[in-house]
Design a protein around this nucleic acid. Structure first.
Lengths: 204, 204
DNA sequence: TTTTTGTCTAGACACTGTTTAGATTGCGTG
DNA sequence: CACGCAATCTAAACAGTGTCTAGACAAAAA
């Protein structure tokens, strides 16, 4: 509850305050619980204020999505260290799925093309950068070149490396994957084990 | 534009009229363009009327999702005929992706766990039934038993059969897969070819 | 010090889903 | 056939939403 109070008419750093507020709301209540007015209230500012900084709600959420891709990229970056071939791909996919499970709100936002501005250059760059470890692993295993930012022309074998991660992550966040315990919570360990089994079936 | 006019106070078959209206709106404007009031207007009925038949907006959309899974199931049913092993899996996955591409609105709805009632028994049954062809193909190839409706206890190798379809379909609907032509439209043929290449990389 | 520029507020607008109380009708029973 | 009941739909309201237009305020530039 970082309700930023202020004494002066101007906020000072409203832009990043709104991004933080949005991230907190999404983490606590999910994308479906997010509201632009809520974020404004949390930053201690009037409902119309965010528009001036982000143009629209989608503008703000695009920034949140961009930062989320950066976070995902950071987690993927070190995940394949010392591993090669299919073992590297398995490790990266496992991290991808864990990120989706542990950051359900943000991950759902990343897939909501109606809420974010997909053509935003910074966002596209962040997506591209986040996928680089997967590309590198696929390249190492199968002799691919480095992919270009244009997703339209990605090598089919690189897509083949991304697809299982994406699919598993979606199933996980939709609660269809695994091991929901009696409390309703997800048994992370059991899910990790299941994911590992699936990955060994795909990439032995 | 099936604007159902009526002369009597009672509608007659409002329930299915609302489902049809919702399907038309979602097909034309996507899930994000759907509105309960819009559906009510299209059926020629007051904003409060749907509540009595479906409880809430999620109730109506759950019916749409159920019918969508039935449609998907129908398309999958005949897709693997005469095929075996990985070839059957490839054919089924291709149909899955085509369904997502040609029914973007409905497919997006199926993944929106915040808009539909995931615990609805009819919906769960429809999901299970739709996945049966994939299960059968995976079983034929790898010696699996028939899966139970509880998704929590699915065989990892069956999940491995579903995951690429799900992942590819999502990438396709998010516009990240392929071959967007200069018009902004998707080049279906090119996309099919790409999907085939990806599948041959996963299931040679 | 004055002007200009960037920030933010106040209030309104057209919507949304859902709730309440009441009007209207069709149907099964006497 | 007539009656009462249950189902069905309306009308109006409520608390919200994102966004737009004026204008108020403050800080930086002239």
């Amino acid at each position: 509850m970082t309700k930023t109070k202020r004494d002066s008419y101007h906020h000072g750093d409203l832009r990043s305050a709104l991004i933080s507020a949005a991230e907190e709301i999404i983490a606590a209540e999910g994308v479906e619980g997010f509201t632009l007015r809520k974020a404004a209230r949390k930053a201690g500012v009037s409902p119309g204020a965010p528009t001036h900084h982000f143009g629209s709600m989608a503008g703000l959420l695009t920034q949140v999505a961009r930062r989320s891709y950066e976070a995902l990229g950071k987690q993927l970056a070190g995940a394949a260290e010392g591993l090669e071939g299919n073992a590297a791909l398995r490790a990266l996919t496992a991290v991808y799925v864990r990120f989706a499970r542990d950051n359900t709100g943000r991950f759902r936002l990343m897939g909501r093309t109606d809420l974010i501005e997909l053509e935003d250059d910074d966002l596209r760059a962040a997506v591209y950068r986040a996928m680089r470890p997967l590309a590198a692993a696929a390249a190492g295993t199968r002799g691919l070149g480095v992919p270009t930012p244009e997703f339209e022309r990605l090598d089919p074998r690189l897509i083949a490396a991304i697809v299982p991660a994406h699919g598993l992550a979606h199933l996980a966040t939709e609660g269809r994957l695994a091991a929901t315990m009696r409390s309703g919570e997800v048994d992370a360990q059991a899910q990790d084990a299941l994911v590992d089994e699936v990955l060994r079936a795909l990439w032995p």
